[in-house]
């Protein structure tokens, strides 16, 4: 089995998550070939073949160009699986590759179980083993699911790709980086976060009161922020802040991977949820099965005494 690992590279840097591709390939016992659309200074240090396409020539992510570069390497190497991390890069590019190769794509693989690919579904409540039926397979792996055991070592055999490619029909205009305003939750010792279970904006003071009683900060999931119930700077998760408080209290939060990625480094996690099977239970040290609208005020009252 041979795996082509499509590394992700942004704004001059190889993204750390790319190393997870190597961990996945190792778990699969696959021979590894990597593709980096970056520059010489940023080639993963592993003792195998690395195809390098110069980012100064091809530019930042452009779907058409990246698709053609990957297909070129697929042509040369004839890999069995083409692997990307399930990020805004991977989920954008992978289906384009799958369509061109008429290959099955499995999205967001979380594990390899008895040789089968395990996927999470129904917001983390269930798992599936999905069997691809095509010779070639395109796979995206869940970010954080395959952790490298040791740093890579070795000297890669670098093969430069030099193709003349047209940029296709999507033009990249630039990046917009959110201004850092508002609170920095990364330093908070206690965070009380509200999820959609809070129901409406009028109920937010319940969360604020508990945070105040504990001397902590208020955080939230994305739907709470999208609904305008709390400012964006308080969002925890992959598209918000990454936090690591001593105590994280998740109120009415289901526990989607995108949220968990931002708070799993917390020392102690309490989840309050009326659904005993909510996936947040998997990362919680304590799961309180209760209605937050009743439980949280009662807790605040007792703590304030």
């Amino acid at each position: 089995m041979k795996a082509l690992l499509v590394c992700e590279y942004r704004d001059g840097k190889l993204l750390e998550s790319s190393y997870e591709l190597f961990a996945f390939a190792d778990k699969l016992n696959a021979e590894k070939v990597a593709l980096v659309i970056g520059n010489d200074a940023n080639v993963p240090a592993f003792g195998g073949k690395v195809y390098l396409a110069d980012v100064s020539k091809y530019g930042e992510y452009n779907p058409d160009i990246h698709k053609k570069l990957v297909l070129e390497v697929v042509n040369k190497e004839n890999p069995d699986v083409i692997v990307l991390v399930h990020t805004s890069y991977g989920w954008d590019l992978a289906p384009r590759l799958a369509a061109s190769l008429k290959a099955a794509q499995l999205s967001e693989v979380v594990n390899i179980v008895d040789g089968g690919f395990e996927l999470s579904c129904l917001n983390g409540k269930m798992r599936r083993i999905v069997a691809p039926k095509t010779d070639k397979k395109v796979i995206t792996i869940q970010s954080g699911a395959f952790t490298p055991q040791a740093p890579l070592s070795g000297t890669p055999e670098v093969i430069k790709l030099d193709l003349s490619l047209e940029s296709g029909n999507i033009e990249f205009l630039g990046y917009e980086v959110a201004e850092k305003t508002g609170v920095d939750l990364s330093k908070a010792e206690i965070i009380v976060s509200a999820g959609r279970g809070i129901g409406k904006k009028d109920n937010m003071p319940i969360i604020e009161a508990l945070a105040k009683a504990l001397g902590g900060e208020v955080g939230a999931t994305r739907p709470v922020v999208d609904a305008g119930w709390l400012e964006q700077s308080r969002q925890v998760g992959i598209t918000g802040q990454t936090v690591s408080p001593k105590l994280y209290i998740a109120c009415g939060i289901s526990g989607a991977v995108q949220h968990i990625a931002g708070m799993k480094k917390s020392d102690f996690v309490v989840a309050i949820n009326k659904d005993k099977d909510a996936p947040i239970g998997e990362v919680a040290d304590v799961l309180v099965v209760a209605d937050i609208l009743q439980f949280v005020p009662a807790l605040t009252e007792k703590l304030s005494k």
């Binding site: 205009l173 990046y175 918000g240």
Partner: peptide
Amino acid sequence: KRELEGGIKSLVKTK
């Protein structure tokens, strides 16, 4: 605007 990870967006134009 495409949303990328960690508060970054990429601006793209197409027809």
